[in-house]
């Protein structure tokens, strides 16, 4: 039975003290995420969406409010979380396979027992022939695919992704979205995906949370009802375009409210 409130974010806020002034990055955000749901957090750069994700991951304390995941308040990082960052952050001296097994070593488990899973994951993202290559021998997209496998190796319950494809070119980015969607079908985790790409947010997610400009709140909670598995051609359909346009207007309105131009 899937928990409808696997993630419970309650009135979470984040303020930074900068000199004599307080900067409010995130203001009273509240939402729930059901187990197994893939949620995109969409917003313009600098709207505090990454901060929100880091608070969920336990890597950044919240100034106010509570976050509960799997029924327990988040007070620090947990091993049931898988993390993917903007840069692949692979160890340059390790092969793809060793990089994928890195979390296993950090958790002091036996890498030999996970080797098969690591090879299978790398195979699934099309890196079956690159197991023993070092990051410098891989393209940017390949490196980020290794990072996806690394985040999944210990079978986490929750995958948190902080703009994982924003450093990639547009063509690679589409490929990565398809690769992530494909691996998602087989691994079905709860997912939090932070992005500033509307297309990406809609294509991947069951639900899109639109964050407004600073101090950010959730401006819109939108259910994406396209059937899974999703075909790459989905992005060319009129319905897809309509949703994207609507989300774009919401973001712009959010900007207008916070008194900034939507340049």
């Amino acid at each position: 039975m899937a928990d409808p409130r696997f993630i419970r974010v309650r009135d979470v806020a984040k303020t930074y003290v900068a000199g004599a002034t307080e900067v409010e990055a995130v203001a009273r955000v509240a939402f729930d995420v059901a187990e197994g749901q893939f949620v995109s957090i969409l917003g313009p750069s600098g709207c505090g969406k990454s901060t929100l994700l880091m608070m969920c991951a336990g890597l950044e304390p919240a100034s106010d409010g509570t976050i509960e995941i799997a029924g327990r308040p988040v007070v620090g990082p947990r091993r049931e979380f898988g993390l993917i960052f903007q840069d692949a952050t692979l160890l340059p001296w390790k092969s793809s396979l060793e990089n994928v097994l890195f979390p296993i070593r950090m958790m002091k488990r036996d890498p030999a027992q996970y080797r098969e899973r690591a090879e299978a994951l790398l195979g699934q993202v099309g890196l079956g022939d690159f197991l023993h290559k070092r990051p410098s021998e891989l393209s940017g997209g390949m490196r980020q695919r290794v990072a996806i496998c690394r985040a999944l190796i210990h079978d986490p319950e929750l995958l948190m992704m902080d703009e994982p494809f924003s450093a990639l070119d547009a063509i690679t980015r589409d490929e990565m979205n398809e690769a992530l969607a494909r691996i998602w079908e087989t691994q079905r985790k709860t997912g939090l995906f932070v992005t500033h790409s509307i297309r990406e947010a809609v294509f991947l997610a069951d639900r899109v949370l639109v964050m407004s400009g600073r101090p950010s709140t959730i401006a819109l909670d939108f259910q994406v009802r396209f059937a899974r598995p999703r075909d790459p051609a989905l992005v060319e359909t009129p319905e897809f375009a309509k949703i994207c346009a609507m989300l774009k207007r919401t973001i712009e309105a959010g900007y207008a409210r916070s008194g900034r131009s939507a340049a």
């Binding site: 620090g76 960052f85 952050t89 160890l91 958790m107």
Partner: peptide
């Protein structure tokens, strides 16, 4: 060391000793 690399290690609840030998020193 890249900040995200250290964040990844902390996310995996690795000890300072582990982070030193596996990441920082290399």
């Amino acid at each position: 060391v890249p900040g995200d690399m250290l964040r990844l290690c902390r996310g995996l609840t690795a000890s300072n000793w582990q982070i030193f030998w596996a990441v920082r020193f290399p």
